[in-house]
Amino acid sequence: MTFRARLDAEARASGFVSVGVCRPDAIPDAKVRLHQYLSDGHHGTMSWMGERVAWRGDPASLWPEARSVVMLAHSYAPEHDPLGDLDRAEDGAVSVYAQGRDYHDVVKKALKRVARWIVAEADAEVKVFVDTAPVMEKPLAQAAGIGWQGKHTNVLGRDYGNWVFLGAIFTTQELEPDAAEAEHCGSCTRCLDICPTDAFPAPFRLDARRCISYLTIEHDGPVDEAFRPALGNRIYGCDDCLAICPWNKFAVRASDLRYHGPHRAPPLAELAGLDDAGFRARFAGSPIKRIGRNRMVRNVCYAIGNSGSARLKPVAQALCDDADSVVAEAARWAVARL
């Protein structure tokens, strides 16, 4: 077997559903697209996207010694239809990727296994990244041929759908690059049409300021009242544009069962009663922990207000004088709406 064939075998043995190779300079248009995105203000309050733009827009400058980038996809495909959770008005809908173990831990462990193999087999240096550095994984994935950025801006592949995490291994080893993948969305616009907040100003473009994932996870402070009804019972992220994609008929079973954890659709009443310590204990080891108790309970109040459930009105009333002013305002909104 060639080195590349053995690399592919090692990657799949480590749980990855796809692997491809590109050069660090394979995405020359990324810098221009990034600058346009930032100048349009589509990043909202995510100021970190405007930091280290030189590295983010030019992977070759991130580690000049690197000669190849190995891009890998790790499936977290759900065993249920996430859109069904939107009908559970008294429960909170949580994005599939956050229902179990923090993907950073799972994917990085698998990446390190492949990276160690490269070091042992090629005597090369490596660096691994999974949302841990200013790396534009999605355009690199397309350049490496493992998928393409769909109209919803996420990466999808004909062999695995779009339920994947991306990881990157930069290495000093010279590897033959794969052909870049072409776009295969055709005339389909299901991901654009289903968006509850019209967050796509055009195909392949996302305005984060209107995106429910951004509003429930990244945005601090009150959510604009115009968007609150569209949140429905979504308390952490949104999967609508991913779940509706027809390419998911080829979705590959999640490679790690820890992705299917205890946070699929928790009861809103239970979450509303969490204090800081209770929140940290409930979501230990989960990516949800990064938003903190106040932002989570804020989201829960919006969901309660959208639930139409009289049984949840006392739950919201109990938070109307919460120590956090944003939570208190969200609770008052929920009570008024009910």
Rank of each mutant, 00 (worst) to 15 (best):
L338G: 06
E218P: 06
C211R: 08
S75D: 04
K249L: 01
K249A: 02
A226P: 03
C241A: 14
V32N: 10
A310Q: 08
A133S: 01
R52E: 07
P314V: 05
L140K: 09
V155T: 09
T197K: 06
A144F: 02
E225M: 07
A9L: 09
V223C: 11
S39G: 08
L268R: 01
Q149L: 05
I27L: 07
G20V: 02
D91H: 12
A60E: 15
S39M: 14
R264D: 05
H104P: 07
D256Q: 03
S47D: 12
A26E: 07
R290Y: 15
V130R: 01
S309Y: 10
L86Q: 01
P262D: 04
Q99P: 04
I194T: 15
A141W: 03
D276H: 08
V135P: 00
A5Q: 05
K249H: 04
S39L: 14
L338M: 10
N306V: 04
P246C: 04
R234S: 03
G273K: 10
A281E: 06
G84C: 14
A115Y: 08
G100F: 11
A318M: 12
D85M: 09
A230F: 00
C185W: 00
V70H: 09
P246D: 10
R56Q: 06
A251P: 02
S309D: 04
H152L: 05
K108N: 07
A98L: 07
P82I: 07
V106A: 05
R258T: 07
